[in-house]
């Protein structure tokens, strides 16, 4: 029997650390020997710092833009993420993964895509969005509805501007509360849905955001007539192993780390703890 351990991290080098907002930084990470992470959009890695701990973080970079590195967009909110925010290029972090079921991009080809990320929920969706944009010809319409609490909390501003400028992306952004710098839409993310029309049978919808958001966004998607099997969401849970053993991420009888973190609405609509 092999002496390997599914819990032993491999150490990878931070090659770039870039602040995105007051709370979020973008970490670019390089695996040893220039190896590719080999992830699907929507998967996550377990990130650890020796002596501090380990946390699940979704991969925000697209597999189509790997260049031997991958990116994590991390909010400093707990022990691990605060320690990570203090690290510099050249430092090493422990990585395990990629883990979990990501977005089934093959089933999305030829379809119109409606993305509705809220806040930090843009991080996992950005992986998919950028892959779709890199293979733009394989997909129908691309609609992105993005909501954040305040203008200062908008992530990836340069990419948002790029998406807004593209003719082949329908991009709408809103903030819950504006400020003097903001002349755009104000309101929660659901207030963007009346701005768009979709061909429901041919549309795949994808959302991720704070727990409170899902019910309302899914209601809007269902209201557009999009079938439950074509609504994908990525869920956050506490995780200690990432491989379906430790029990922390259970959503009733589902292991979020293994059966998820990406689920269809049809899969979880009768799972009471999911939303």
């Amino acid at each position: 029997m092999t002496q390997s351990s599914i819990y032993a991290p491999e150490f990878a080098r931070l090659v770039d650390v870039r602040p995105l907002t007051e709370l979020e930084k973008l970490f670019t990470i390089e695996l040893p020997d220039g190896r590719s992470l080999g992830h699907d959009p929507g998967q996550f890695v377990m990130v650890s710092i020796p002596g501090v701990g380990e946390a699940p973080i979704s991969i925000t970079s697209s597999p189509s833009r790997s260049n031997g590195t991958f990116e994590l967009c991390v909010r400093r909110v707990g022990d691990v993420t605060n320690a990570l925010h203090r690290m510099k290029p050249g430092d090493y972090v422990g990585i395990r993964g990629p883990f979990g079921h990501g977005f089934p991009i093959e089933q999305m080809r030829g379809k119109d895509l409606l993305f509705a990320p809220g806040g930090l929920g843009l991080a996992p969706l950005r992986s998919l969005i950028n892959q779709v944009l890199d293979e733009r010809g394989s997909f129908g319409r691309v609609i992105i509805l993005y909501g954040a609490k305040r203008p200062a909390e908008l992530l990836f501003r340069d990419e948002l501007e790029e998406w807004a400028a593209r003719d082949d992306v329908e991009f709408h952004v809103t903030v819950d509360r504006g400020d003097e710098s903001w002349d755009g839409h104000i309101g929660v993310i659901t207030t963007l849905f009346p701005l768009i029309t979709v061909d429901p049978r041919n549309t795949v919808a994808v959302t991720c955001g704070p727990p409170i958001m899902y019910r309302f966004v899914i209601m809007e998607m269902l209201g557009k007539g999009i079938p439950e099997t074509q609504i994908y969401l990525s869920l956050e849970r506490r995780m200690k192993c990432g491989v379906g053993k430790c029990g922390h991420c259970q959503i009733n009888d589902l292991y979020c780390c293994k059966e998820g973190p990406v689920f269809t609405y049809a899969q979880i609509k009768n799972v009471p703890e999911a939303l």
Partner: peptide, 29 residues
């Protein structure tokens, strides 16, 4: 189970430790 990451007093070695955990504890999820 839970996973704990500890570091030696000399800062030369870290350990990853697995410990029983309980879904009945408040912070489990």
């Amino acid at each position: 189970f839970n996973m704990l990451d500890t570091v030696s007093l000399t800062l030369k070695e870290a350990l990853r430790i697995r410990r029983w955990d309980s879904c009945q504890l408040d912070e489990f999820a």
